[in-house]
Design a protein around this nucleic acid. Structure first.
Lengths: 197, 197
DNA sequence: GTTGAAACGGATGCTGCCTCCGTATACGTT
DNA sequence: AACGTATACGGAGGCAGCATCCGTTTCAAC
């Protein structure tokens, strides 16, 4: 569309139409079958050929990143509410909860996110959203540390990893109780002693 | 071989030969390319047809379980040494370390292990080894709890999950430092307060 | 040797990935 | 309204991996 605008040509209508059809179908398929769902099936159900899918989204990750865009915005809006909280430890806890839900949106989502998180060169379209999440987490961590609620040795990245792996475990069908115990074990791990309930 | 022995017939020589060739080749491929490596390639390099591979090991998990057998025995022997320790918390720590190394043997190993751990009906050949690990972990946990070193709320299964996800994170290429911090965060989480260094 | 059971192995059909290029379409122009 | 062209479409096709089936081979017993 940039190229079009510069050359004074309106973008073709079918482009946008196909793009949104693909995104909607992909979201449904990711929800039902996880992120490893067949892209051919997505294309077919969206009513386009495989070539069209790959032109719009050259890799599975690109499609995934585009689909995640909506979820990311939800997360950001939720972030606004969290930042209003007085208690930094509570804010951190809620933020971690929100991230975990984000990671659990589709089956198999944690894997590509982890892969994207370590790459500094944004070779993946998921790297940027990941970095945003890590940075945000670190902000909450530092705030809670300043208030003396979180141990000094903890980094935002650590809790990003923790949330990601909890989501991974959840996606593998572990029961809710075990997850609760793990979550509170981690919380015990990062909270300062005298703050713990 | 049981059927053969019962019927008084010696097992065929090629059976055992092919089996060990497959196991050796599979181990090498799992090491180099992870557990999702091509089974066709394994068969070809072992010098047998795909049919032979699938007759010996009907599923990828069956092959994996057979390959893991050796590692499992190493782990068990290590267990013997660990159980000699006086300090239950130290024993637990070393056991968790040993499990993490076991889970990290091949890339992508944590996924099938997690999948096998939740299934009670042993629909997977990995279920039994997993259950052994969980039971063993629980033994260490209880011993440490009796000594007052580990919080009462902790279950062996929780720490099994924790070790598994640490191995998962490690396999996704995270740096050693972050892993160390995560490990100690978890340790802080399960240890009783007054024991912590 | 011969024989029969047991094991082999590769041809086969299938699904999914990704690319390439002839064709169709939408936009701007006349 | 018809045309010309840039742009996008879409499906055929090549490739890799999975898993099976069955004609052929191999082994052990006799």
């Amino acid at each position: 569309m940039n190229a079009d605008a510069q050359r004074g040509r309106k973008p073709r209508a079918d482009v946008q139409r196909n793009r949104t059809a693909l995104l909607e179908t992909a979201q449904r398929h990711f929800l039902r079958h996880g992120v490893s769902t067949s892209l051919e099936a997505v294309a077919k159900e969206a009513g386009v050929g495989p070539g069209t899918l790959y032109r719009h989204f050259p890799t599975r990750e690109a499609l995934l990143a585009a689909v995640l865009q909506t979820r990311s915005e939800e997360l950001m809006s939720r972030q606004a509410g969290i930042e209003q909280l007085d208690h930094p430890a509570e804010a951190l806890k809620q933020w971690l909860q929100a991230m975990e839900e984000y990671f659990s949106a589709y089956n198999g989502l944690p894997e590509p996110l982890m892969a994207a998180a370590r790459a500094q060169e944004p070779d993946s379209p998921l790297t940027i959203p990941c970095d945003l999440l890590i940075t945000a987490t670190d902000r909450y961590v530092r705030a809670a540390q300043l208030a003396g609620h979180v141990r000094a040795s903890v980094r935002g990245y650590d809790l990003f990893l923790a949330a990601c792996s909890i989501a991974w475990i959840k996606g593998n069908g572990t029961e809710a109780e075990s997850l609760d115990r793990l979550r509170s074990l981690i919380a015990t791990g990062y909270l300062e002693r005298d703050i713990q309930a």
